[in-house]
Design a protein around this nucleic acid. Structure first.
Lengths: 142, 142
DNA sequence: GTCCGTGCAAAGGATTTGCATAATC
DNA sequence: GATTATGCAAATCCTTTGCACGGAC
């Protein structure tokens, strides 16, 4: 139930918040921009102002319910917090995002930060490239 | 001589381009935003329009002379292309950027992309945190 | 009923663009 | 002298904010 998560986060249960949360959960592990969320809500007939989507997403991020990523290319994308950290493979053609996690890399990062006398607050590793589907379909439009 | 680099990149030698290039080279390996470059030029008495700075930076990036990074927090930063790849430690307090490079991590990334049947075009690893100076100076303003 | 949340429209910051002028080759 | 670059201002994109109204508790 979504209302549980909202309450736990100290946020009042409102329709816009419930709806935005549903959209994000439904599309896990996809990565949606504020605009994406807004469009999906519109298509579903749930009229929520874009400004509200932004506000709600920001609140969710502060509450630790979701995560914001600033990949290259302008707009931020959001995904449900999945408990465990992971990194991303982003296809520069179709924009599809795949997740991965590598213990070795994680350990090395901690090591590097320690050596630099640096307290890690966050880290993001993103590999940009062309996914196998886009490579196979060079002549088609995805 | 900067004009060499510009010519090699197929760009006409103009004052704004020379000046922007000088600023970037002078501050290597610092990371400057378009606004930063603009302000430095202004302080030096070199009046270049902000729009021109953006245009020139974009051209330099396309020519492979410089590199653009979109760290978290809004605006892009640029640095001279230094031939060899490296990653970044970004202090979330003072915004200072430190560079590092780890062979083990690089190899793991290639491995991961291979397993995902993904052709790497680029990759960026950024560790966000608090540098030792900011940690020591918690009560002062940097 | 009080307080917080929402919608709307306007503001905001970073970056881009159209157009006339000015510079390079 | 032809073509490309620049300056300026306006436009654009993504995101945030002020304010009056509506809804949650």
């Amino acid at each position: 139930m979504n209302s549980q998560e909202l309450k736990k986060a100290g946020l009042k249960i409102t329709l816009p918040r419930m709806k935005v949360l549903q959209v994000l959960e439904k599309s896990t592990p996809h990565h949606l921009s504020a605009e994406d969320v807004y469009k999906i809500l519109m298509e579903e007939g749930n009229d929520v102002a874009l400004a509200t989507v932004y506000r709600v997403l920001t609140q969710f991020e502060e509450a630790g319910l979701i995560r914001r990523h600033n990949f290259e290319g302008g707009h931020a994308v959001f995904e449900m917090e999945q408990g465990e950290h992971h990194d991303h493979l982003v296809c520069v053609k179709c924009r599809q995002v795949t997740e991965f996690m590598d213990e070795g890399i994680e350990e090395r990062q901690i090591e590097i930060a320690k050596n630099a006398d640096f307290v890690i607050t966050d880290h993001s590793l993103t590999i940009y490239g062309i996914c196998h589907r886009c490579r196979d379909n060079v002549f088609k439009q995805d």
